[in-house]
Design a protein around this nucleic acid. Sequence first.
DNA 1: TTGAAATATTAAAACATTATGATATTTTAA
DNA 2: TTAAAATATCATAATGTTTTAATATTTCAA
Lengths: 105, 105
Amino acid sequence: MEKRIDPLPLQYIEAMSEALKVLSHPQRLRMLELLDIRGECCAGEIFEALDLEQSAVSQHLAKMRQAGIITCRSDGTKRYFRIANEHSITILNCMRNKIAQEGDR
Amino acid sequence: MEKRIDPLPLQYIEAMSEALKVLSHPQRLRMLELLDIRGECCAGEIFEALDLEQSAVSQHLAKMRQAGIITCRSDGTKRYFRIANEHSITILNCMRNKIAQEGDR
DNA sequence: TTGAAATATTAAAACATTATGATATTTTAA
DNA sequence: TTAAAATATCATAATGTTTTAATATTTCAA
């Protein structure tokens, strides 16, 4: 992997900051972690497991879905969610490492 | 690297989301990119290169410094900034890859 | 077809962040 | 010591986000 020389176009910078903004919320991070651990969850499992409001969870899921961070499939009245791609996990793991490293000092 | 089973303590989740929140701003991302490209910049170089307000740049730099994303050293009346650790760059590169991949489709 | 379960949507208040202009501080050179 | 350059701080108006409670929609089973 080579070092990039040119700055990204502004349009891409905006897209990056949008994605990061979606990740930068404690409840959404917890939801993402849960999806990473369990693989797939329906909305009800999430708000029960994390003790959050149904409405809030639904809104957070919608936001993460719009940002392309998670995907969902329907099964009856339930909707199952999972992490959409490896980038979301990369960031999650990067943060885990960063936190772990800070804990070392 | 093994798959993590347990969720991070809430305190760490908060720290993660704080760090991501700081990164999730277009101007701050552009500043970070510039630092990645140039290695080190003083505040004046930054607001000139990116055509931003002096005051805004100073505030953004302070925020990134508090978050441990960048460091600075003084030289005369100037202050030189650089990226503090590899995690910030990892996230930056992860986002670059994500954006690049989206461009492919 | 109706009721119940699961999820989504909406609207408003509460809260947080950013941009802007003005002013303050720090450092050095004259 | 004073002036100028560089950066930082402050106050606040403008925006944006989150929470909450209430309501709406969708799906299936009885």
